[in-house]
């Protein structure tokens, strides 16, 4: 059994596997399938200062090897989470990451203030393509990334992960902006904007017309971006996008991720998170590594 512990921005995780925000609710549903203490961290669905209703259904469309979603960040608000979910979650031996969303910089600061230091880490969701008012704009403009990162950082001492959008020309610019703003880590990728048309009705499947692509279909893009970001910044990286097996996760670690998140694969198989964790361990054991840290960034690049 290899040493699976990783340290992400000063926070010790028992292993490098967490949940991709928005695919795991606040943890209650999957706690019926496995013990959440098996996860290095649990990343919660997005929280905003005020409750959000989200978009109309259909909010999900199946595509080849993946899905599109347009949930629209439906959530009951940060205070509701604190009052109804937090204590329950704390029974598990795992770190808690709150995913923050909002439509303005002030919104993000407000959620961070409401949550205070009640969770172990924050993940700034500046990249969700579903929010008309600015979710997209924050994540695609380096100046805004730096600004929002430094503002949230100033409002809170909780280690801050900035989650990057792949819907940009150069992901390294965004990662550098997060680093300049004082981010403690980056995570990537969020979903890629996509569209699915039902050729029988000639209408988009999603009520919202467009939505975020995730699942195995996006994995090569995500691995490439993790590789690029690894070379651009010093920050710890949480890699995600299509991971379904231990082997998938190993690709991300080799590309330079310090930890990985699993999302869509769990929507199909409730045990995906556990399988990825043990798959990582199997690879390490099979190849004679003592620690997961030994393979981070160890891709042997050609030329």
């Amino acid at each position: 059994m290899a040493d699976l512990r990783v340290n992400i921005a000063g926070v010790e995780w028992s292993n490098p596997v967490t949940t991709a925000s928005g695919t795991f609710g606040f943890g209650r549903e999957y706690a019926e399938y496995f013990d959440l203490s098996n996860l290095g961290a649990v990343c919660l669905k997005a929280l905003s200062a005020k409750p959000r209703l989200g978009n109309r259904s259909p909010r999900i469309a199946e595509v080849n090897d993946g899905i599109l979603n347009s949930v629209g960040l439906q959530n009951p608000g940060a205070q509701h989470f604190i009052d109804n979910e937090l204590e329950w979650l704390r029974q598990f031996d795992t770190k808690i990451i709150a995913n923050l969303c909002g439509s303005t910089v002030e919104d993000y600061v407000e959620v961070a203030e409401i949550l205070g230091d009640k969770v172990d880490m924050f993940e700034l969701n500046i990249s969700c393509p579903n929010v008309k008012e600015g979710g997209m704009a924050f994540g695609t403009d380096p100046k805004m990334i730096e600004d929002i990162t430094s503002r949230v950082k100033a409002a809170s001492k909780v280690p801050l992960i900035v989650k990057l959008s792949p819907n940009v020309t150069d992901i390294t610019e965004m990662a550098k902006a997060a680093e300049a703003g004082g981010a403690d880590a980056v995570s990537l990728i969020n979903t890629l904007l996509g569209m699915k048309i039902d050729i029988k009705t000639r209408k988009p499947v999603l009520y919202n017309n467009m939505g975020g692509l995730s699942g195995p279909a996006v994995m090569p893009v995500a691995v490439r971006m993790v590789y690029q970001v690894r070379r651009a910044v010093k920050l710890p990286i949480i890699g995600m996008g299509g991971i379904a097996t231990g082997e998938d996760a190993i690709e991300f670690l080799l590309a330079g991720a310090d930890a990985v998140a699993v999302g869509t694969a769990g929507i199909v198989d409730p045990y995906a998170w556990i399988k990825v964790r043990s798959g990582i361990n199997d690879y390490l054991d099979r190849n004679g590594y003592n620690s997961v840290k030994d393979i981070v960034g160890k891709v042997d690049i050609n030329g």
Binding site: F24, G25, Y30, G54, S57, R59, N69, V71, G266, I267
Partner: peptide, 23 residues
């Protein structure tokens, strides 16, 4: 009936609208 992802309540992709406006 609605299009579903997880089927267990976690991904919130399968909502219907209620008369009180909630989903």
């Amino acid at each position: 009936e609605e299009r579903m992802g997880c089927g267990v309540g976690a991904c919130v992709t399968c909502t219907c609208t209620m008369t009180d406006g909630s989903r």
